[in-house]
């Protein structure tokens, strides 16, 4: 008998748990980012970034977060390969059933998001962590990386702004299916509450991705 990690439903469980974890992470990330455009100075943003980069609890969380990403990606690819293998001979005319539209492109949106992640990490995370190419700022006598300036400089470049916006739209497609799908995979389905979950999924997706998109646009035009 298969075990929880290798059975089809077990793998979906992993996918959905990791996915929901990433959903929560996106909210935290967005909150910090918004501080950059809401506050008058970069101080709250830089302090938050510093806190995120140095606090021991967050350090542990960071590892878990990377784990979450890897798990979600690993299972996603693994499931997809199995799914392709389950139909070695394809149809001449593919099924166009009226169903969750974005669900058909999860692996494709995932691939784009992965590329985005790599670039994103190179742009900010690794620059701050490894290369030290970040200007410094001093608050209350302590030195902080001035990531805020780095971000603002980046988003003054039109092509970068467009790239980010496109990637977040792709992320929205991914989330539109992923959010409610995670609940279905966990077996959390109910006549009354499932429509609520679906609506929440849409609200969440619109709010989070619009929030992320707002930042480069705001910086490009108004900062």
């Amino acid at each position: 008998m298969s075990n929880i990690l290798t059975s089809s439903i077990g793998k979906k469980l992993m996918m959905s748990l990791a996915g929901l974890f990433l959903v929560i992470f996106l909210i935290v990330h967005l909150a910090i980012n918004l501080s950059l455009i809401i506050a008058d100075t970069h101080e709250p943003f830089n302090k938050a970034a510093h806190f995120m980069g140095t606090n021991i609890v967050i350090k542990v969380m960071e590892i878990i977060l990377f784990g979450g990403f890897l798990l979600h990606m690993f299972y996603g690819v693994f499931l997809q390969i199995q799914n392709w293998m389950a139909r070695p001979k394809r149809y001449r005319k593919e099924n166009y059933s009226q169903t969750s539209f974005f669900s058909k492109f999860m692996i494709h949106t995932a691939a784009i998001i992965t590329v985005f992640l790599v670039i994103h990490l190179l742009d900010f995370y690794l620059k701050a962590k490894l290369f030290g190419e970040v200007p410094m700022a001093i608050y209350d006598g302590r030195e902080y990386h001035d990531l805020g300036t780095l971000v603002i400089n980046k988003f003054k470049i039109g092509s970068v702004v467009i790239f980010y916006i496109v990637c977040f739209m792709i992320l929205a497609f991914h989330l539109l299916h992923g959010f409610q799908s995670a609940f279905q995979s966990l077996g959390l389905e109910h006549k009354k509450y499932t429509p609520v979950i679906r609506a929440l999924g849409v609200i969440y997706t619109v709010f989070v991705t619009a929030g992320f998109m707002l930042i480069p646009v705001y910086i490009y035009f108004w900062m």
Binding site: S2, S7, S8, K12, S97, S103, S181
Partner: peptide, 22 residues
């Protein structure tokens, strides 16, 4: 039943809903 389903080589569910529609 799930173990047998997996063993037989069916794919994994990704909640697309095509089954329900058809």
């Amino acid at each position: 039943m799930v173990a047998k389903m997996d063993e037989l080589g069916f794919g994994n569910c990704t909640n697309t809903g095509a089954c329900e529609a058809e």
